[in-house]
Design a protein around this nucleic acid. Structure first.
Lengths: 146, 146
DNA sequence: CTAACTGCAAACGTTTTGCAACTTT
DNA sequence: AAAGTTGCAAAACGTTTGCAGTTAG
């Protein structure tokens, strides 16, 4: 039997462990947010996280806390910020290496599994700058061009 | 002698021709904006374009017109929108195929010439969706990690 | 002359911030 | 008890929009 996931996803204890492993104080709201986020690989905006968390009804979390928490999780590497839509940031709970496909028609973001597309080449970085990450986004349009 | 560029960049006539070639009515403000943009390959935010245009003093252009024009130019393929910074859109006057490097410390965006990095693989697109473009962004940090 | 474009200022939606009240350890 | 976190409402930010007046062809 597994350690205690009641639905599909991580148990409260598992989320607490995950947060502590990243040096994050596990507060009520961070646990609730983390549980929603880490339940499965997904791309969520802050607004969506706020809605999910409050619909789940496990605790009430304010908008400000959602933003603070998502920023904190991103800084600590628990989620990946995805910048593809000028109007909002997406938070990706899949921290493994992978690229994205963005539908400019619907605003939908989805994963592109490795093999679908890959980057090669080692850019000679001018000076002492380190690579933080490589983002590859395939922009697609679902409807025929206007 | 060339067709009439007084400084370095395109002449008024050349910009007008370029706009007409894209089916864009060449108005005073579009010409001024185009001249600044097309003077050389560069990455500018709307705010920067507004500043450049008004400092150049060739005509007064409002904020709304700068936004309208940049969107129009982007739709017509005269500039490329680059989404890397959650706080603002960059407009790239280099429409050739190339990728970018974004310094998360300074917010600076620069070109990565082909060969530095390249993408391969033909993703099997589910259904009837067409590829609009592929964005590759190398995120770097100029200072040592905190 | 008509259609298209511009400017202004107000509206928008997302994200951030200031600060008092409240958890966490 | 001290440190850190939360919620609220207000502010900030880039961007869009409505509409009257102007310009292009």
């Amino acid at each position: 039997m597994n350690s205690g996931s009641d639905k599909q996803g991580l148990s409260k204890q598992e989320v607490i462990a995950k947060l502590q492993a990243s040096g994050i104080t596990p507060t009520q709201q961070r646990i609730v947010i983390g549980r929603q986020l880490f339940a499965r690989p997904q791309h969520l905006s802050a607004e969506q996280v706020l809605a999910m968390v409050n619909e789940a009804g496990e605790a009430r979390v304010s908008k400000a806390t959602v933003y603070n928490t998502l920023n904190l999780f991103a800084r600590r590497g628990l989620v990946r910020e995805v910048i593809v839509d000028p109007t909002k940031v997406f938070y990706d709970s899949n921290t493994g290496e992978h690229h994205h496909m963005f539908d400019v028609e619907t605003g939908e973001l989805s994963d592109l599994m490795p093999g679908q597309l890959c980057v090669s080449g080692s850019p000679s970085l001018p000076g002492h700058m380190q690579v933080v990450g490589i983002d590859v986004v395939l922009r697609v349009r679902s409807a025929p061009a206007a």
